[in-house]
């Protein structure tokens, strides 16, 4: 029986090793076509949020530019490094890391492999290597706009903000939203709570249920998959949620009022295209904002938001682009700009 034990154990091992070998044995790209890979963070490629948006950008690059594309999903934080290595081993010309959680893994890979190009969404390095590009979004700008909509649309005078894991990226959503609500109506109370997770839908649902219980009628979630739970609570309570990153109205057409969009797809498309043109801007960090249409309010907002309010939002958007309104992006700037 011991022998059968050992036999089974070795079969299991063989299956895993075999699977690994197959993954590594993907054909290398031809010299004339560029191949671009991306590694998702723990949200996975169908997160209804920015990982999915990133993959849509690459798929567009595949169909319009003929670039060869692929992705690897990270089940947990410890997968980032090995996924980076796998991408490198399959001979990618450019490797994207989607999300600030991967900042260290990418910097390490870029330093170790100067012959390949890397890029990261949502992170700006103090000192960027020549084969690495940082992409950041002015998330506070669309958040300000959806905050303005929430401030005008609330009937109870209370709205909520649910954050994922606190940090520079979510701060932009958080303080932008708070400022937008106050700009619309200083009397409105904003509840704020962090889930300390980007994946736990149950805690999102629980947090949102409590906020609705405390009188909120509109909740903005910038929390990846945690937001699924927030939208679920909105459906159950028949109240409103505001989506994030992508136009999330399709998730609950009667309960997602609007979405603060971060066009990760267009950023990935544009920067992958520079590689094909041979002008990859290694060492630089790019900011995508309202002015270059890298962020914005979801097009489906006109289903639930009245046209005159959307017209005001357009005016505000123009004022932000022109610099007449500056939007806070963290606690310090929030205080400096006179919000409280």
């Amino acid at each position: 029986m011991k022998r059968i034990n050992a036999l089974l154990a070795s079969i299991v091992l063989l299956v895993f090793v075999g699977a690994g070998a197959f993954a590594a044995a993907e054909p290398e790209a031809d010299d004339d076509t560029i191949s671009v890979g991306m590694v998702t963070d723990v949200g996975g490629v169908n997160d209804n949020s920015f990982n999915q948006s990133a993959w849509e950008g690459l798929q567009r690059a595949e169909s319009e530019l003929g670039i060869e594309v692929s992705y690897l999903e990270s089940g947990q934080g410890s997968d980032y490094g090995p996924n980076m290595d796998t991408m490198y081993d399959t001979g990618k010309d450019l490797i994207w890391g989607v999300g600030f959680l991967m900042a260290d893994a990418i910097l390490e890979a870029a330093t170790a492999n100067p012959d390949t190009n890397y890029a990261i969404i949502d992170f700006a390095y103090a000192d960027t290597p020549d084969n690495l590009v940082g992409v950041v979004f002015a998330a506070q700008e669309p958040s300000f706009l959806v905050g303005y909509i929430a401030g005008k649309m609330t009937e109870t005078g209370t709205v909520g903000f649910v954050g994922g894991i606190a940090g520079a990226v979510i701060d932009g959503f958080d303080y932008g939203f708070h400022a937008g609500v106050q700009y619309a109506n200083p009397e409105v109370t904003v509840l704020r709570q962090y889930a300390d997770s980007f994946t736990d839908a149950a805690i999102g649902k629980s947090i949102a249920t409590q906020m609705y219980l405390e009188g909120a009628d509109i909740i903005f979630a910038a929390a990846g998959l945690v937001g699924d739970g927030v939208i679920e609570a909105a459906r159950e309570q028949d109240l409103w949620a505001i989506g994030v990153d992508r136009d999330q109205n399709y998730l609950a057409p009667d309960h997602v009022m609007t979405s603060a969009m971060k066009r990760v797809d267009s950023a990935i498309f544009q920067i992958s295209a520079t590689l094909q043109d041979g002008v990859f801007p290694g060492g630089e960090t790019f900011l995508f904002n309202l002015a270059n249409e890298g962020v914005g309010v979801a097009p489906t907002s006109d289903i639930h938001v009245p046209a005159d309010l959307l017209a005001e939002v357009d005016d505000l958007s123009q004022m932000i682009i022109d610099g007449e309104i500056s939007v806070p992006f963290d606690e310090a700037s929030f205080g400096e700009m006179g919000y409280e």
Binding site: V42, G43, N46, E73, T199, A201, A202, K205, D228, E232
Partner: peptide, 16 residues
Amino acid sequence: TLSIAIVSQFRPGLIS
């Protein structure tokens, strides 16, 4: 219970 009562779909990371 998680996929069709607490939320309404299955996705990776739901069971974590």
